[in-house]
Structure formats: C-alpha cells, structure tokens
Design a protein around this nucleic acid. Structure first.
Lengths: 225, 225
DNA sequence: AATCATTAAAGTGTCGACAATAAGTCGATT
DNA sequence: AATCGACTTATTGTCGACACTTTAATGATT
C-alpha cells in the first residue's frame, strides 16, 4: 500500500528511517534535530543526512531555519485543522477526478478490497490497526485513480506521512471504524456511477468527519476533569 | 508582493537565481542540469548547488532521479491541466477561508489595490505586465487572507513559481485583462459579504477561465495551419 | 553487419575538514 | 544587582576530493 519508493541511495534509506521514527513518535514532536548526532546514529556523513532532512522538510515533517537548525513539526490543534482543510479540498478533487478516470477494473478492485476489510473487521473486532491501514489503502486507491500525477504526488508523497503521523500518535481507531466502511462504500458507488459531484461531496464529508473526530479528541485532552 | 524570503545563505541566493532563470525561460524546459557546470557558473560548490536543487524540486520546478540527474520540468498540456486542477481546488479553499478570516482592514486594502489596478490598466492599455503582477498580487492577498499557514505555504512557496512559469513562458496577457478585473471585484465583494460559498465558487470559475484560456492557446499552437 | 561484453568517460552520491554563524559563558561597567 | 559586551563553545553552512553508478565508446564474437 506504500507508494513505490525504491531505495537506491544511502540518503534514501536514512530518509525512510527517520521519517518512520518521526511518524511513529520515536523522535518527539517539536524536538530539535542535531545533524552531527543523527548522522553518527545512522552511520552516514552529515551531507547524506542533510539530504534526508531536505526531503523530510518537503513532506512537512520537519522545519528548518537557516543557521539555526531543524525541528520536528509540532502537532498543534491549529495545525491539525489547517492540514485537514487542505486534505479535504485535495482528496475531494481526487475523488471527483476518480469518478471520471477510474477504469471498471480499478473500481472492482476497490470493491473487493472493501469486502476484504469487512471480513477482517468482523474477525478482528476492536483491533483497529488493519482498519487504519485499510482506510489509508482505500484513500490511496482513490487518489491514484484520479490519474492526476501532480495531485497524486502532493497527497501521497507530501501530505500522506503527516496525516499518518497525526493518526498514529493520537491513536486514531475506535468507534468510527464501521461507519467509515459504510462511507467508503457510498463513495466507491458514486464513483462507479460516474457521479463525480456526489463522490466529491461524500469524500469531503468523510474526511471532515475524521477531522471532527480528532478535534473532539483534542478538546477532551486539553480540558481534562 | 513576493513572499518574504530573506536570503541568508549562499544556497538561498543560488536557489533564487536559478528559480528565476527557470521561470523566465533562460534555462530551457526539459533541459538537463549539470551540477558541476551550474555550480561553477554560480561560483559555489556542488554541495551548495545541490541544496538549491533540492528546494527547486520542492517547488516542482525540477525533477531528480537518483544517479541520473536533474531536469527542468517540461510544461506539457497534460501537466498544465493537472496543475490548474490542483490550483483551482486550493485557491477555492483559500477564498472560502478568506471570507471567514480576512479583517475589514485587509479587505479594504484589496479593494484599494483593485482600484489602483484599474487606473494603471487604463493608462497602460495593452501593456499586460503590470496587470499580470497585479493579478498575482490579488491572488496572493486572498491566499494569505485565508490565515491557513499550511495552505499559504503550499500555494505561495510550492505552486506559485510553477504557475508563474506557465504564464511568463506562454506570454499570458491580452484579452482577459479587463474581464479578470471584474471577476476580482466580484470575489472581494463576496468575501466582504462573508459569503464563503460564493467566494469559493467565483474564484474557482475565475481560475478555471484562465486555465481554459491557456488550454485553447495550447490547441492553437499544437494545431497550426 | 549486428549484438553483446568490456572498458573509458562523465556525472552523481558521499565523505571529512574548514569557515561562518548562533548560542552560551564569563567578566567588566554602571 | 543588572546589563552590556567580549570571548568560548557548539552547530550549521560550505568546500574540495574520493567512491560509486550510469552512459558511451570500443572491440570481440556470432
């Protein structure tokens, strides 16, 4: 389900490793990154590490300032809202384009995927990891189905990991699982009917619901008893 | 009107210089970039130049492949369409958010800006450069008015120069000038009325018209007599 | 003559060291 | 005692050289 990203160089490997460490929370949000330290830690030179840092900056996982250094992005509620607004607009577009451009075959595959999710969900009730992967997989297929390579790159390479970081570190799972399945089904049906307008609307609503879900969780955490 | 981008390091300067050369067409579309050559040409080391190339890749002006090299992006009709689809979605969102978040003062400034454009346009009929700058300035203000920093960064830092490249190298100007002014006026009025939905619709239509305009130009050029 | 293997050339990826900038420490001055 | 300034330290920016990969040119084989 990962975007095909063949690792050819040392900086590729370091980039992927650090990216995962940030997404999984092994490197804390907002923490400063020491080039020398991380380079030694990963067994590469600073030049190689800096190459990796540049790419991390491209996916908005770190922020650099000249002569000052590099910090892991901090997931404030504001930033969360901002990212979800952008994501909603872009995936809404992707969904509309998918209704125009997905082949019959691709649509069938997504429907098969959903059925597979359903059975997996029944077996592993409560265990949300698969569902989360499945959700991302569903979204990934719709996005690539848009056939807009610029949009695909933007979502899959530049925004995807940031969203994953949100979800992983906030432990998104739980009550939305079954609801999400129904929403996915409605979306792929709209796409199959070539109803781009409806597909876009449903996708926006679907993502908006996730956003609201996370937001409410934020409020619960920031206002404890 | 440029995004505040203080040049602090040598790679900053090289980045800005090469970016302009690409946007203005001094470096041809699709041409390969030799690191050694460009580095010598700009009087810096390859490491510094590579830093600049990384940033150029972030704004989608060049494409890199491991062990192969770096090429200036080629503006095919397909790519043009893709970028305009993304731009429409994002600036539409920006416009809706601007209707929610722009202050009365900011709105007044934009209106003053438009009046200034009108007079400039009357004086310099036919000369489209100012109008083009003005158009970008207008869009820039709406975008920043959204107050969504992620969206602002995406549009102003990662997409803006690519759009500028389109316009500069295809010599966009001409018959849409006066029409664009009216559309700008309608947009800012919708924003002033806090009608985000309408503002978004108008902006999408406005950008869509530009897109169609460029597309038809493409068709004229690709199918000569 | 065409194809494939070998080899030379050019270009990118990586490294360690040096230079420049920012942050922290200490002492002098008011 | 507090503030400012010079100095020290730590970190980032930049450089030139080397290693590796790709590409092409060359020559051997069928």
């Amino acid at each position: 389900m990962e975007v095909i990203n063949t690792i050819k160089t040392a900086s590729d490997q370091v980039f992927v490793d650090i990216r995962q460490a940030i997404v999984e929370g092994d490197i804390a949000q907002g923490s400063k990154i020491s080039e020398a330290e991380l380079a030694k830690c990963h067994g590469v030179s600073r030049a190689t590490l800096r190459e990796a840092l540049n790419r991390l900056e491209s996916c908005h996982l770190v922020e650099r300032k000249a002569n000052i250094g590099c910090r892991v992005v901090a997931l404030t509620p504001d930033k969360l809202l901002e990212v979800y607004q952008v994501r909603t607009a872009l995936e809404g577009l992707a969904c509309r384009l998918a209704a125009e451009n997905m082949t019959h075959n691709e649509i069938s595959e997504v429907k098969a995927l959903l059925n597979q999710h359903l059975s997996t969900q029944k077996v592993k009730q409560g265990e949300s990891y698969y569902q989360e992967e499945g959700d991302l997989d569903f979204h990934y297929r719709i996005i690539t189905g848009s056939k807009n390579s610029h949009l695909i790159h933007l979502l899959c390479n530049e925004l995807y990991q940031l969203i994953r970081m949100f979800r992983v570190q906030m432990g998104m799972n739980g009550p939305r699982v079954s609801k999400a399945f129904d929403e996915h089904l409605a979306i792929i049906n709209a796409i199959e009917s070539k109803d781009g307008e409806l597909a876009e609307l449903l996708m926006k609503r679907h993502i908006g619901a996730s956003g609201e879900n996370i937001k409410s969780r934020f409020n619960l955490e920031t206002v404890p008893a």
